[in-house]
Design a binder for these strands. Structure first.
Lengths: 321, 321
DNA sequence: CTGAAAGCGCTTACAG
DNA sequence: CTGAAAGCGCTTACAG
């Protein structure tokens, strides 16, 4: 293994100078810095992260925390975020570690150990729940963190999110403008997550602007009878804005079972369905998970330029596909 | 931060003794070991992984490598595996790092950096492709690795997998025995992955044993006309064994479009569909991703007992749900 | 059974 | 602009 000592020997310099040169310390002459970098390259020098982290008292690692309970389908989204994050992290010579478990205790222990034993000072949470014990713990530690999803009202921390009001607005308008939907309905779950509230608000805005009558339906987890009844009760519906692709696809299939020859346009969120399951009447809003991961890293690690105020959040765009 | 030096001072011992005691070195008396552990507990001692790793010249980290190209839906499976792995890793005071990227170069760079800079010596790959550049690189390095999925014929390394022949056999028999299917068909993709070949073999075995006529259909990614034609050409079909839940659900919906009043039983693999999308005629083989993750860690990190031969692979059970 | 000392590969305050 | 020295928190060969 090549160390800074080897570089120093080859150039007749001290290890201190080599260390500073590699870190582009301005106290070292440009010329020496260039020589050091060239020699490092030539010898195939690779810094030892464990040594660096030990002296820096801080790991070059971002801890990524998964939620304890999530719908299996959200995993699709999480891996997209990981992909976006890691590209950024590697550029910055950072490493990605994950904390994931079946219980809150497990995850808390995992994160605590990351802080005290691995000296990790930077975290990204793939969720943003209210009264979450992991978030509460992180707030009391000397670490930085960013959540995917904005905090509930009254709370404040770094986060990345979509503009979900706009996403709801755009979704409804897409059906109205592109497909001349007369009566698009909004389908949500019973969970009332913050993003559901926002998207519904956007839907309602668009419907009002178009001078139409809003219709909102809360779909249960199972029990096909409920959506079937809803569909029969609303023969006028000709468009669906669904809180996610799964609810959208479910409604679509129920609708086609009841009216095999009637057309309906469906718009879901997350762009998470494989091609096998959809057709041309099905649309989705891509909320750009890769971009969210990338933004989360930037928010977490990039220092603001001189005089610039630090960002408190980044809003990532969405796109109907 | 509490260090072994603090423990040593409090007990009037040397750091060497404390270090050995904490590592349960038999050269230290039981009594001293107990005292040291008690004091460590009392002071809230937490080992500094960076220091440990620097001296050990090896990180307490397992690098988990994601495939470059995968179907989005496989992410569901990967996160299940991560969950299973991490529980085991935490128990062993190990940390989970991931390598994921959009291109082979990115992933290779990521893994190389894990080896040389982070000193990671243990890897788990979430795939097992033939002629994979990452695998080829790992084989030339002084590291251990386990793949999820068995290597192709002629190759040999540590792996975890299901018994896919049996999974195919059990799937076909489930439809035959539980639902008296007379003509279950097998639906596969055009990819001919090893697990597809194995499951098909199992299906064929079961069909032969039952004295029935096998029917195998390769479903294209898009183009509903192809499955529609197949369904019309095979009016006798009353059961489907599908290579994954998505292909199964797709076939199911096409079938119901053509024969709204005819019943058919479908069995897919992976148990990856949310409740919203299925009904009582849809079944799935859970291949236990959590268990696979757990087994991968055991295979990778647990030394065989004295005299015991080292395992070369672990086969994880499956279950129809 | 225990300890003093060297070393892992870095960074940085101090000195010149 | 550069260097000698101390230190980060561990482990382990050597000595007793």
């Amino acid at each position: 293994m090549v160390t800074i000592r080897d570089i120093a020997k080859r150039l007749g310099l001290s290890v201190s100078t080599v260390s500073r040169a590699l870190n582009d310390n301005k106290r070292i002459s440009i010329k020496t810095r260039r020589n050091v970098h060239q020699m490092a390259e030539k010898l195939g020098y690779q810094p030892n992260y464990n040594a660096k982290n030990l002296t820096n008292r801080e790991a070059n690692t971002v801890g990524v925390v998964f939620p304890v309970n999530n719908r299996v389908v959200d995993n699709i989204f999480y891996v997209g975020i990981l992909r976006g994050m890691n590209a950024q992290l590697n550029q910055r010579n950072y490493v990605l570690s994950i904390a994931i478990g079946d219980s809150t205790e497990q995850v808390i222990d995992n994160v605590k150990s990351m802080i005290t034993r691995a000296q990790i000072k930077h975290f990204i949470l793939l969720y943003s729940h209210q009264n979450d014990p992991v978030i509460e713990m992180l707030q009391n530690e000397d670490v930085d963190f960013v959540t995917i999803g904005k905090p509930a009202a009254g709370q404040d921390w770094l986060y990345v999110d979509n503009d979900n009001v706009k996403a709801g607005f755009d979704g409804a308008n897409f059906l109205i403008n592109e497909f001349h939907a007369q009566n698009p309905v909004f389908v949500q779950t019973h969970n009332d997550w913050p993003f559901e509230i926002d998207r519904r608000k956007g839907y309602l805005d668009a419907i009002n602007q178009a001078g139409k009558q809003p219709i909102v339906f809360s779909i249960p987890d199972a029990d096909d009878a409920v959506p079937d009844q809803f569909i029969k009760d609303h023969p006028q519906m000709d468009g669906i804005v669904a809180i996610d692709d799964y609810s959208g696809l479910k409604m679509y299939h129920r609708f086609k079972m009841i009216y095999p020859d009637k057309d309906i346009e469906v718009l879901g969120y997350n762009n998470s369905l494989p091609a096998e399951l959809t057709d041309t009447h099905f649309h989705s809003v891509d909320i750009h998970p890769g971009e969210m991961g990338k933004s989360a890293v930037q928010l977490l690690l990039d220092k603001p330029e001189d005089g610039e105020a630090a960002n408190r959040h980044i809003i990532v765009g969405h796109q109907i596909v």
